[in-house]
C-alpha cells in the first residue's frame, strides 16, 4: 500500500497545478502567464540541479548561473554560425547538437572547476565557485563575435521535429516534462548508494573518509551531474528568451538560484520548484508596482534568511510529518 506523506501530497499538488494552470491561461487569452510559467519551470530545473549539490551534498556552489549561460550559448553559437557561416564543426539548428553541446561543455566546465574547487571547503568553496562563474562570464563578455556585453540574439529556435519550439505551449510542455525528469533523476540519485555517500559526506566528511570512501570523487561526480543538468536548463532558457548574454551568468544570477533552493526548502524534491515559483511570482508581483521593487524584494530575502529556515516546504509541512 502506497503511503503518501505530507510532502508527497505537496509535491503532487504543486506539480499538477504547474501542469494544468498554464494551458488554461493560454486558452483564456492570458498568454503572458504561460510565458511566465515557462520561465519558472526552466529556472526550476536549474534550481533542482543545484539542489543536488547544495542541498544534498552541502556544496554551496555560488557559480551555477555559469552553466545556464553555457547552455544558452550552446544554442546561440551554433545557430549564429549556421546563419552567418564560420565554425562549421558546431554550426546547426538541430536540438540534438545544441543539447549535446550544452550538456557536454557544462560537464567539462564542472569537471575542471569542480576538481579545483573541491580541494577547498567552506567559505573558500563558496568564493571559488563564484569566481569561476565570473571567469565564464568574462570569457563570453570578451568575445566580440558573439556580441560581447550586448549578447547574442538567437534568430532561430532549436529544431526538434515533429515538435515546434516556436509554439509557446509546446515549449512549455517540453520544459515541464524536463522538470519532471530532472526531479526524478535527482531523487533517484539521492536515494541510491551513491546518494547515501554524498549525503553522508555532507553530514560528516571525516567519518565517511574513515569508512573508506574517497568522498572527493563522489562530490566531484555530483558536481558534474549537477552542472550538466543546469546546462540543459540553460539550453531551454536560450530557446525561451531567444537571446543570450553574459548577464545570464553573473554572480547575482547564481545568488538567485541559491535563493530559490533555500526559499523553497533544500533537501526536498519539490523545494527548489516551489522556491523558483515563489521567487518568480514575487518578482513579477513587486515589479508590477514599482521600479524600485528590489528594495522590498531584498528585505523579504533577508526576512526569509532570518526567520524562515526550512523554506516554504518547511512552513507548509509544519512540525508534523
Amino acid at each position: 500500500m502506497l503511503q503518501l506523506t505530507r510532502t508527497d501530497w505537496l509535491t503532487l499538488v504543486v506539480m499538477l497545478a504547474l501542469l494544468i494552470l498554464p494551458p488554461v491561461f493560454l486558452w483564456t487569452g492570458n498568454e503572458f502567464y504561460l510565458l511566465l510559467a515557462t520561465r519558472l519551470v526552466i529556472l526550476a530545473i536549474a534550481a533542482v540541479s543545484l539542489n543536488l549539490v547544495l542541498g544534498y551534498g552541502g556544496l554551496v556552489s555560488f557559480g551555477h548561473a555559469a552553466y545556464i549561460g553555457i547552455g544558452a550559448y550552446a544554442v546561440g553559437i551554433p545557430v549564429y554560425h549556421e546563419t552567418y557561416g564560420g565554425f562549421e564543426a558546431v554550426a546547426g539548428y538541430g536540438a540534438g547538437i545544441h543539447i549535446l553541446l550544452a550538456v557536454v561543455i557544462s560537464a567539462i566546465f564542472a569537471l575542471f572547476t569542480g576538481a579545483i574547487s573541491l580541494r577547498t571547503k567552506g567559505v573558500y568553496f563558496i568564493m571559488i565557485t563564484m569566481a569561476f562563474g565570473m571567469m565564464a562570464y568574462y570569457f563570453f563578455l570578451s568575445i566580440d563575435e558573439y556580441g560581447g556585453d550586448d549578447g547574442l540574439v538567437i534568430d532561430i529556435r532549436s529544431e526538434i521535429p515533429p515538435l515546434n519550439l516556436d509554439n509557446p505551449l509546446q515549449l512549455f510542455m517540453i520544459a515541464y516534462v524536463s522538470l519532471v525528469i530532472a526531479m526524478i533523476v535527482v531523487k533517484t540519485i539521492v536515494n541510491s548508494r551513491f546518494g547515501m555517500v554524498l549525503q553522508g559526506a555532507k553530514g560528516n566528511n571525516e567519518r565517511m573518509v574513515t569508512m573508506g570512501y574517497n568522498t572527493y570523487f563522489y562530490k566531484l561526480t555530483a558536481y558534474v551531474i549537477s552542472g550538466a543538468m543546469c546546462g540543459y536548463a540553460g539550453a531551454l532558457l536560450g530557446n525561451f528568451t531567444t537571446f543570450v548574454s553574459p548577464d545570464m551568468m553573473g554572480w547575482s544570477r547564481s545568488g538567485e538560484l541559491m535563493f530559490m533552493v533555500i526559499l523553497g526548502g533544500a533537501t526536498t524534491a519539490i523545494g527548489p520548484v516551489m522556491g523558483a515559483a515563489g521567487f518568480i511570482l514575487l518578482e513579477e508581483f513587486l515589479s508590477s508596482y514599482t521600479i524600485f521593487w528590489h528594495l522590498p524584494f531584498g528585505l523579504i530575502l533577508i526576512a526569509v534568511v532570518l526567520f524562515a529556515r526550512g523554506g516554504l516546504v518547511g512552513l507548509i509541512k509544519g512540525k508534523g510529518k
Binding site: 541559491m258 533555500i262 528590489h294 528594495l295 524584494f297 531584498g298 533577508i302 526569509v304 534568511v305
Partner: peptide, 28 residues
C-alpha cells in the same frame, strides 16, 4: 550580528538580500 551563529550559506544569502536593499536605496 544576527547571522554570526549561522552557517556561511546564510551569511551569503542574507548579505545578498542586503545588496539589493542598499543598491536600490542608493538608486532612490
Amino acid at each position: 550580528r544576527h547571522l554570526y551563529a549561522r552557517d556561511h550559506l546564510d551569511h551569503v544569502l542574507g548579505t545578498f538580500g542586503l545588496i539589493l536593499v542598499i543598491d536600490t536605496s542608493v538608486h532612490l
